[in-house]
Design a protein around this nucleic acid. Structure first.
Lengths: 190, 190
DNA sequence: AGCTAATAGTGACCTAAATCACTTTTCAAG
DNA sequence: CTTGAAAAGTGATTTAGGTCACTATTAGCT
């Protein structure tokens, strides 16, 4: 566990250094969780008590439409944060599913604890501020890609941007992430 | 100008209160700017020196594809923040255009000043942290709507969500925001 | 190794929406 | 008020990608 917490500290300190005291305070607000492949981290209708930092593993966040079709909102792996941010922020029942594509481990942060450490340790507030901003920028680029690119070029783009991810994820899920049918994606590779 | 700054203070204090001293410090890091309809706030290839809070007016942020077609990334009006966040954050040349659909007024915040006020006044860091998080949540919902909904239901959804906006913006721009052709949108209303 | 279930590939056909071409309406500037 | 430009509407045609149905491959389990 020591070394896992050390990884989390490194993650925070990629942006701003923390004193040992600050870190001890911050770290005490996280709790550990481990799940096997196929288990759920978040389910629609259930309370979303935490935001999760992924120590190890891979998850998908998705919603299911009225036809039962799955639409992937995000993939998240080591070093990523994941949650149903909307439900978490407003402390409402979940609106999406998040489940594990591989056995995974997490550090969990409740809303109350997040606010606590942000107000106690300014560097942490700034950490989340910058991280959130990066996330915003990424989503903007994804929106632009959905608006401007064909399915095929979105696929090529993703292949270049996250080659490691593609190898860990079945193509039908990539298709769902790109907003294309499995069959159409299959005809691209050529 | 006093009352315009007062609006900005109110905007900050929607989330967290500031002391007069804090506010005076914060406020001194903004500068005022005013533009007429059709003038550019940001252009691709040009430096993006500021993030803008809109006092009054309406702008569109968009990119132009290889066929010369315009794709709208965001509309922003009173009380919204707008910039080419990606270029701004990394201090790189702009990748999108932002121009005014109406005569508009802004308070401008440079990256250096943003970091200054965030590190000096923790409530400001937390303000931007929460704002950024809200922005992230909104973009996630837009992505979901692009993945799961038909063009027509996206339009209905937008009509409900931002009725005021629709009245101020030509429909061809709404179409571009929704990722639909002008002609197709025109056939919806029915 | 052998077997089931998940994943991927492929052909035939269909449909939502894009594109093109043109008309009508609305708006803003002299 | 008039007039030219921008915006909006509409028909005809095309097309990217969806859907359906089936086969082939691959990956976990026991």
């Amino acid at each position: 566990m020591e070394e896992k917490l050390h990884l989390l500290r490194q993650h925070f300190e990629e942006l701003f250094a923390l004193t040992d005291d600050e870190w001890n305070f911050v770290q005490s607000h996280f709790q550990y969780k481990s799940l096997k492949k196929h288990q759920f981290l978040i389910q629609t209708g259930q309370p979303v008590d935490f935001e999760y930092w992924i120590i190890k593993g891979l998850v998908k966040g998705y919603s299911i439409d009225d036809k039962g079709k799955e639409h992937i909102l995000q993939f998240a792996m080591e070093n990523y944060w994941v949650s149903d941010h909307c439900a978490f922020q407003h402390q409402e029942p979940g609106t999406i599913f998040v489940d594990c594509l591989e056995d995974s481990e997490f550090f969990c942060l409740s809303l109350e604890n997040r606010e606590k450490i942000c107000f106690e340790v300014p560097a942490v507030a700034n950490f989340f501020r910058i991280k959130s901003n990066h996330g915003y920028i990424n989503l903007q680029q994804r929106i632009l890609s959905l608006l401007t690119m064909t399915a095929e070029s979105r696929y090529e783009y993703l292949l270049n941007k996250l080659p490691k991810l593609i190898q860990r994820v079945p193509k039908k899920l990539i298709a769902s992430y790109l907003g294309v049918s499995r069959e159409t994606l299959s005809r691209f590779n050529s």
